[in-house]
Nucleic acid binder design. Structure first.
Lengths: 222, 222, 222, 222
DNA sequence: CATGAATGAGATTTCATTCAT
DNA sequence: TATGAATGAAATCTCATTCAT
């Protein structure tokens, strides 16, 4: 059996095991058994548990980024691209729950070497979103003044909301995936649109955050 | 030294160790050493690694919920309560990054007994947020169409976004609790405001989700 | 509370715990808890686990020997004394199963210091039995030629048969304690009687053990 | 080195260690060291201390039953078979004192899973003895009154006595297998012979159990 | 007289990793 | 290419025992 095939089997088994049990609780024995090969062969190809984990992260990160890229058509309007990109993202993570778990839950909770690997992927996606928002802003002839960091924060918020909704939809009878998606768009879209136009909540109609409260200092002045 | 004091030292050490290394990688030896006691004493007071972890989760969850409650004044308008609550939340998670990491990253990736513990806390916070959104909608007197279930979904989305942002703010140098709170308000408030007015994204200006894409079915027709 | 009472509580708890769990599996914690006192008090009175175990053995051995002695009236004929002694023995062990377990099962499987303690008691009972048989033999004007070792072997056999029958009677519906006792006497009495008369099986009617078989060498010639 | 050989080494070491120190006091470290292998290898092959102990019991029980079976020639008269069986039994236990100690002393004092294992072997031997006694009774053609249950009781008594004597012979220097066998035959044969003739102790010459003693109720009236 | 507080030592068990073939 | 055989190191947890009060 050719090496490439064997390696893919091993990575499949590893991703699944790491996702289900976590990095530490996943044993090389189990992975080798699940892959249908002997343990020394895993070491021959992947060298160590750390390298195996890193290989998993890299493969899953690459697949996710590729899926998002493939879902987006560059020529289309920015809002359409965003919708397509988000949909591709959620579709891919839904179809590869183990891979997503490795990236999102496992890699980030096990120290620098692995977190850095995910950070690279994250930067790629953030840049993509940033680009889109910038395009949209330019098309609307606004200067959104969105720092990379702010974009990253929005990405975090969006992903967090989406994950939370996915779990909620799964646990609440009668709530469909489409309900969840619609809720998310209703929830998030107006805010994103505002930000693309350079508008922020603290400047919005009527509300003024309390300036002097010790317990709850107001947001940065607009 | 009295038992209560020792126990607090142990829990402090455990929270820190669990947050930094994860549940599995955190060894009882290290925790005991960090607490300045011998390992048997940890077992005498906390009985097992599982129970120690559970005790950490419970303590941190209780502290977080208490902090949010303390930050909110019940009589104030709902939007003000939301801002205060978010600020208190991000402030607490920023001041207790290890505690938050235990709740958000560690407890949820290590099986049912622990995840359930966090789910209980989460339900409490979600209920609080739902209450706020419901109040605000009622105060706006303009939306007869916001079903309980939709409110619940929005609460989930908001809490999920907040959780995700809290972790991100802790991991990203230079991001303050106020930054996080402002980001979340910018992100979420316009959508909530729209919904309270009965407006929804899918009906908003001009945009129509692509109808024919296999991978990306459109939102429910308005 | 006077020391003697406390000590008895401790020994009671210890005998029970040692009998139920074995010497090693019985923990001083459990014993102290069962006795209703704190662990340091157990150490203050009984000094160590070994000494505690030894004290248990001594107390139970003493009680057993006393029970047998009390059951026998010296003036009576030897056969009556034997019957009384056996009955007292079985009555006592049935009423003190934990004590008997400590003597018979636990003490003999945990190394020299404890086994020696039991051996002393054993010697006392063996001497008593030996004496009885000797008396009976003398009364019958025979020379039984029973070595101490042979008497000890008979004791072993009798006790082993009795234990086995006791368990069997407990596990077989419809078999009463009296049935078991009768079976034992029917089984053992003729042999003992023979031995008191100096007769042995190998000399008995007709049967001759095979002399030359390699696999099954015959018994010592009479 | 092939697995089967290693396993035998480990079982040898384990039987010896369990016999000498008891189940709890025998440490896996010592067993591994005595077997000349590392501890993980013991776990790789035998899985746990419990399973290792069970494996010891099963192996020793099988060997003992095989030895007794091999010592008996089915065609011979029942009394000869009994003598042969006993001799084989005492010879085997004398040659394998550690194995016998594991079966007789250790396995029966450490809870159900192990005791049951021994009970199975014991049942096999008891059945064999019962068969013999039944045959002998039938051959003697003289006792219509020996019920199955009485035969079973006699088997239990005989086996119990033999077990007890085997341990005693092993622990007492100078007592050979033949001594033990002869002692047991001297002890048990006259009674068995009597019973086969329909005679019972309680009917025997002159002796009447004391009628009125509270502690020592007499045997069933003849 | 009695105990709450504390620990050194050692138990079973698992795991990542290597070597000889 | 592939594996059966083997292990050093470290994990969780328990226990007999002591001291200050």
């Amino acid at each position: 059996m050719p090496r490439a095939v064997r390696e893919r089997q091993m990575l499949d088994a590893a991703v699944r095991t790491f996702a289900r049990h976590g990095y530490r609780a996943a044993s090389m024995d189990r992975i080798a058994e699940l892959a249908g090969v002997s343990k020394p062969l895993v070491y021959l190809y992947l060298h160590s548990k750390d390298e195996l984990f890193t290989a998993c992260i890299r493969r899953e990160a690459g697949a996710l980024v590729a899926a998002v890229r493939a879902g987006v058509e560059p020529g289309l309007p920015a809002d359409r691209q965003l919708w397509d990109g988000l949909t591709a993202f959620f579709t891919h993570t839904a179809e590869n729950p183990d891979g997503w778990s490795v990236l999102h839950s496992q890699a980030r909770t096990h120290g620098e070497p692995f977190a850095a690997e995910v950070a690279a992927m994250r930067a790629e996606i953030t840049a993509f979103v940033n680009h889109l928002i910038g395009d949209a802003a330019r098309a609307a002839r606004c200067d959104p003044h969105l720092a990379d960091r702010e974009v990253a924060g929005l990405g975090e918020a969006l992903v967090g909301a989406a994950e939370s909704l996915a779990a909620w939809a799964n646990d609440t009878p009668g709530v469909t995936a489409r309900d969840a998606a619609a809720t998310l768009m209703n929830f998030a879209w107006p805010g994103l649109e505002n930000l693309m136009k350079g508008e922020r909540w603290s400047a919005s109609a009527g509300f003024r955050p309390p300036a002097g409260s010790a317990r709850t200092p107001g947001p940065p002045a607009p």
